[in-house]
Design a protein around this nucleic acid. Structure first.
Lengths: 238, 238
DNA sequence: TGGTGTTATCTGTTATATCACACATCATCG
DNA sequence: CGATGATGTGTGATATAACAGATAACACCA
C-alpha cells in the first residue's frame, strides 16, 4: 500500500476506556453470570489487587454498583453481594412486569421476520440447555430471548432500566435457578410469546411475557422459602 | 435535666453522611429544583471549591449522577446538565407511564382518608400557586401530589425508580414549565385522580394518572419545539 | 485578515498517603 | 475462669500530587 492510501484510511482513534469503567464492566458481567455468590464480600483493596489497579478506580466501580443498588452496604459500609430475599425479589418483579410488558408490546411490531426466526432458535437452544442441565446456558439464552424483544422497542431508556433490574436479580437467580427450574413453566410461556410475535399481536405477546414473569417469581419465591426458610441464603459468612 | 434523664434519652448516633453523600444530595435537590440550567457545565474542582471539600467526594457525587444518566458527559468527559430534547423527553414519559400507572393503582387501596384529605389540600395549593404564577411552587406541589400516592404503594424499588426518572426530567421541566403551563390540563386530571381515590377505584386512578402524564408530555413537547425548534435549549454555550 | 503553531491553563484520571473507625486477637486482671 | 482492656490489622473516606489530554489565548506568518 502506498502512503496516500494510508492517509485516506485514517479513522478516529478508538477511545480507550478508563480503568474504572473496565473494572465496572468486569464486575457487572461477573454478577450477571453468577460468578459472585450472594453474601460474598467485596473490598476496594482486594478488587484493586485482583485487577492490578489502584484503589481509586476499584472504588469507583464498587460504589457505582452500590449506588445502583446492585451491591449493598451495611451500616459500616462493608460491601457485599445481596442475599436472596423474598420481599426484595417480589419488588423487583413488580417493576419488571410493569416495564417488560410494555417493552414487549412496543417491540412486537418492530421485530423483523428474521429476528423472530432467531428467537425460535434461541428458544430451541434454551430447551436443549435445560435437557443438558446446563443452567448457566439456560439463563444466557433466556436473557437473549427477552432482550431481543425489548431491544426492538427502540426505547433506550426502557432497556437500560430493565437491564438494571436483571442485574439486581442476577446473583440470586444464578444461585436459585437449578432448584426452581424443574417445572419448566417458562417453556410454555415462551411458546405463547413466539406465537404472538408471528401474528404481530402485541397484546398477546405482552400477556405471555407478563405470565412468564409471574410464573417466574412464584417458582423463585417457592424455591427460596423451600431452600432457606425464607431468610437469607447462606453463602454468607465464609 | 438530671443526668439520668439524659442517659435515658440516648439514641443511636446519627450516622453522619459522608462528604460524598452530602455533595450528592445537594446536587440532587438543586437539579430537582431547577437551580441548574440545562447546558450548564460542572467540573470537579469547581464543585469541590464551592462545597469546601476536596476533589474526591466531589468527583464521587458527579460521577454518580452521570452513571444514573441524570448528568451527561461528552466524548471528552466534560460533564453538563442535559439539554431538553424531544426524543429523550418522550422516552422518559414512556417509562414514567409504565411505572407510575401501576404505582398509582397499588397505592390507591392503601391510602388513608387522612392522606387523601392531604392530597386535596396539596391540589388546592397547587392551583393557588398557578394563579400566583409561582411555578417553582407549582412543581413542588405537583411532585408532592404524585409521590404521596406512589409512596403508599409500599414498593420501595418502584418509588426509587420513579424518582430517578423525575430527576432526569427536573432541569428541563423547570426550564420549560412556565411556557407550557398555560393550558392547565393537569388540573382536570388531578381532580379525576382525587375522585377515583375517594372511591378507592384503582383502575380509575391509574387511568387519570396516565392521562395526566400523556397530556404532560404533549404540552412539554409542544413548548419545546415552539421555543427552540425542537433542537437544544440554549442555556448552553455561555 | 486568516490560518498555524505554541504555550499556559484547565480537566478528568489515577496513584498514594493518611485518618478514624471497626473488629478480632490476645494478654491481663479480678 | 471470665470480664476487660490493649493492640494490630483491615476497612472506607478523604486529601493531595502527578499525569495526560483537551481547551483557549495568543503571537506569528502568509
Amino acid at each position: 500500500m502506498g502512503r496516500a492510501k494510508v492517509l485516506q484510511s485514517v479513522q478516529p482513534v478508538e477511545r480507550f476506556d478508563t480503568l474504572a469503567e473496565r473494572a465496572y464492566a468486569q464486575l457487572r458481567t461477573a454478577l450477571m453470570n453468577g460468578s459472585f455468590l450472594p453474601g460474598q464480600k467485596l473490598t476496594i483493596r482486594k478488587l484493586a489487587a485482583l485487577l492490578g489497579i489502584s484503589a481509586t478506580p476499584a472504588r469507583d466501580a464498587i460504589s457505582r454498583l452500590v449506588s445502583e443498588r446492585i451491591l449493598e452496604t451495611d451500616a459500616n459500609r462493608n460491601v457485599s453481594v445481596p442475599l436472596p430475599d423474598v420481599e426484595r425479589l417480589q419488588e423487583i418483579y413488580v417493576v419488571r412486569i410493569a416495564l417488560e410488558g410494555p417493552a414487549a408490546a412496543l417491540g412486537t411490531p418492530r421485530l423483523t421476520d428474521d429476528e423472530i426466526d432467531r428467537l425460535e432458535r434461541i428458544q430451541t437452544a434454551l430447551v436443549d440447555a435445560m435437557d443438558r442441565k446446563d443452567y448457566a446456558d439456560v439463563l444466557a439464552n433466556n436473557r437473549d430471548f427477552h432482550f431481543t424483544i425489548y431491544r426492538a422497542s427502540g426505547v433506550e431508556l426502557l432497556n437500560q432500566t430493565i437491564e438494571q433490574l436483571w442485574l439486581k436479580l442476577g446473583p440470586s437467580l444464578n444461585l436459585l435457578y437449578p432448584a426452581y427450574n424443574h417445572s419448566r413453566t417458562g417453556v410454555h410461556n415462551h411458546r405463547d410469546v413466539l406465537a404472538g410475535l408471528r401474528r404481530r399481536d402485541g397484546a398477546a405477546v405482552r400477556a405471555a411475557i407478563e405470565q412468564d414473569l409471574k410464573d417466574g417469581v412464584i417458582e423463585l419465591s417457592r424455591s427460596l422459602t423451600d431452600s432457606y426458610g425464607g431468610r437469607s441464603a447462606g453463602a454468607g459468612a465464609g
